[in-house]
């Protein structure tokens, strides 16, 4: 009987102790959803405007002289100027930066996450690597100017593509370390324990069980970091990358190539965009189109590699 009485009390006829107030809560839902959607639209709008502007200005130049724009050197005459040397310079930088930054960054990430004891020193290093990732790139440029261009001149040859690669590697090293650690941290600890429990050493656990699972994450982080590197202008200007290069670094002997002066797409763009003639503005836009293509290709590679490694893992 008492139970039935209680049920009666909770019917709308008598006042309940709960006031759901659904109408107002749903309104708050709506408001937040609209605000979030608006944020997305603003971001998209800005991006589309930028891309649209670049493509409208740059694409005619890019497509009209399709191979020749890519295959000629910069020139005083806008119509004859091309992006061969900056494009090749960017590719050199990309390869060198990757060669220096990927092994050291991934290695440091593995050490810090899998091997280092959780001491005060380790924590201090951890915090400072996080800080390094946030240091403005021009600071890296200043450091590199002193270390790679001046002190190491006998090796790097001064303002060379090698110095540029080292600079950019330094710049993205903290990003790669952080990405590697994140990827390693996402590997469940039970896998490590499974490995240790069957009598494997720490390196075997890392090599055979942890790294294969973390690899897609590491790859993605690394390629995104490389994408950031090839878009950088400030540190390269600081170390004295040239804006007018009418030759390519020789491939043989490779040391000559490494030590030759260079330019890169963002630098060439920066140079052209600061000129008054509209033809050069078009060239700058066309160079940006090429830079975007390189970036898109890299991101596509990242996605492809990630999917492929994940598939291998799931087989």
């Amino acid at each position: 009987m008492t139970q039935i009485d209680q049920v009666d009390q909770s019917t709308p006829a008598s006042p309940s102790r709960f006031q759901a107030n659904l109408a107002q809560r749903y309104r708050a839902d709506q408001i937040f959803q609209t605000a979030a959607l608006l944020s997305v639209l603003i971001a998209l709008f800005v991006l589309i405007m930028l891309l649209g502007d670049v493509f409208i200005t740059g694409f005619p130049r890019f497509i009209q002289d399709f191979p020749s724009f890519l295959l000629s050197y910069p020139s005083r005459r806008a119509a004859q100027a091309g992006i061969l040397s900056p494009l090749v310079g960017t590719i050199w930088l990309l390869i060198l930066t990757g060669l220096f930054a990927i092994p050291t960054g991934v290695g440091a990430g593995i050490f810090l996450e899998e091997f280092a004891a959780n001491t005060r020193l380790a924590r201090l290093i951890e915090i400072n690597i996080g800080n390094l990732a946030a240091v403005p790139s021009i600071i890296y440029g200043l450091l590199a100017l002193q270390v790679f261009v001046r002190w190491m001149e006998p090796i790097t040859g001064g303002r060379s593509v090698l110095a540029g690669g080292l600079t950019l590697a330094l710049l993205i090293l903290p990003i790669i370390i952080v990405a590697t650690r994140e990827a390693l941290r996402s590997v469940p600890n039970s896998i490590r324990q499974a490995g240790f429990a069957v009598g494997t050493t720490r390196w075997q656990v890392v090599r055979d069980h942890v790294l294969p699972i973390a690899l897609p994450g590491i790859l993605t982080g690394t390629i995104l970091a490389l994408s950031r590197a090839i878009g950088e202008t400030a540190p390269l200007i600081t170390i004295g990358a040239l804006t007018f290069i009418a030759f390519l670094p020789p491939l043989s002997p490779i040391i000559e190539g490494l030590r030759s002066p260079f330019t890169a797409l963002p630098i060439q763009t920066y140079n052209w965009i600061s000129r008054p003639q509209p033809e050069f503005q078009n060239n700058a836009a066309a160079a940006i189109v090429m830079l975007l293509i390189v970036l898109l290709l890299m991101n596509a590679t990242a996605i492809y590699l990630r999917n492929r490694t994940q598939k291998i893992r799931n087989d």
Partner: peptide, 15 residues
Amino acid sequence: RRQIGMVFQKPNPFP
């Protein structure tokens, strides 16, 4: 650990 093996609370086969 080769001589003293272990089975854990949650099954943890290698993937």
